[in-house]
Design a protein around this nucleic acid. Sequence first.
DNA 1: ACTCCTCGGATTGTTGACAATCATACGACT
DNA 2: AGTCGTATGATTGTCAACAATCCGAGGAGT
Lengths: 241, 241
Amino acid sequence: MLADIEPVNRESTAAIIARQLRDAITTGSLPPGTQLGETELASRFQVSRGPLREAMQRLVSEGLLRSERHRGLFVIDLEPGDVYDIYSARSAVERAAATRVVRSDDRDQVAELLDDAVQAMADADQQDDPTALTEADLRFHEALIEASGSRRLARMARTLLIETRMCLSALQHTYSKNYQGVDERVTEHNKIIEALRAGDEASLLALLEAHMDDAVQRLAPGNSLHSGAAPGLTRDGVDLA
Amino acid sequence: MLADIEPVNRESTAAIIARQLRDAITTGSLPPGTQLGETELASRFQVSRGPLREAMQRLVSEGLLRSERHRGLFVIDLEPGDVYDIYSARSAVERAAATRVVRSDDRDQVAELLDDAVQAMADADQQDDPTALTEADLRFHEALIEASGSRRLARMARTLLIETRMCLSALQHTYSKNYQGVDERVTEHNKIIEALRAGDEASLLALLEAHMDDAVQRLAPGNSLHSGAAPGLTRDGVDLA
DNA sequence: ACTCCTCGGATTGTTGACAATCATACGACT
DNA sequence: AGTCGTATGATTGTCAACAATCCGAGGAGT
């Protein structure tokens, strides 16, 4: 009857602004290294500097902004080692999510959601739309994590997926030229869904891990997920900023 | 020579206050459900409400505080399902950390750090000091994560370990009465170190996973990590708050 | 030409005051 | 008695002004 009409205002101003800032970083409106001028942003959001600063502090604690005292807040710069770090963390989070999903009863429903995303990937591929392809790819992983039903995994993944997008934008050149990998990527996703449907946990996790490893290989060849802890400033000095 | 004298002020006020708030939540000075009155806290920190609010927004985005508009900020209440959620997320994060450590060259150094923690656990056990025992236990896991060298894993783990402590405080009764498990716990940790020293990744990960599973069993029997996704409001309605 | 100093503009950090909302107690009405 | 409406106090949300700091330009001195 009168369900889900509960939320009146409930969302704080800082939360709204924070979300918009995240979106701006995600879409590239705020590229890495950008300083966030308080006065300008405040007037753009039609609020005072107070609520804006509160919102920005949220992104600082999420690791999307870095704060330099008396100097300002900047969108983080991704260094080469971060590619590995991000994908390593994503691998952990998504593995946990997959584990929870494959052990649940809704795995078939989830599999269908994932199918949709992969279908969208294939479509985007046929239309030569690399942006849509990445979007669909990430939607796949978002759906997987959301399906896990874990607030904490979802929160961690949100930041990681934004950072993933930042990586992809920064390495766009490397990525679009590496265009031969699309079939492989679609196949990998499909195999994952297959294992999920079959309830084959071991295969599912192995495939997922391999998938993440392939992804990091495509982005930063040489930085394997299997290559020991914290490669740090590894290979070439490609500045991802 | 003149190393590590670089940081002059560099840490923002919000960061300092946020840390203190985290500590207060960790130690139980701010129990779950507590409302954080701004005026009182501000005067206690000797700052205005502005910086305090910024700090609190950080904890909100970390999930340690929950915000109700026009009503205030409260320390989160842990519901029964959260025990599973927290340990499931921790399992993922620590697994990733362990993977990175076992593949690195410093595994022996790390193993020694972990040995210290386990030794402290044994000492605490002999002195019948359950608080020190848990502290040492958590120090073990903190050391493991820090050794991974991943900023992101460390950030995620920080929150999770605080929430773990909240669980332990809330379930103190269940825990101290379950006092028979100490030997088992020490043994589990030692086996983990052993596998790490041996460089046996498969064993290490299996042991770690089993260890986390045992932990959740001790705290919330019936909620297995192997029991499907999102048990949610599972068994008895034990209010962890 | 180079370095150092100084000064001005601009930006961030902090504060206290004001507006809006909530919670509680009290009283009127059915 | 019970319920609804109202007023009051307290708390949160927002703002604009003030203080502190940083950055760059310009000039004096070597």
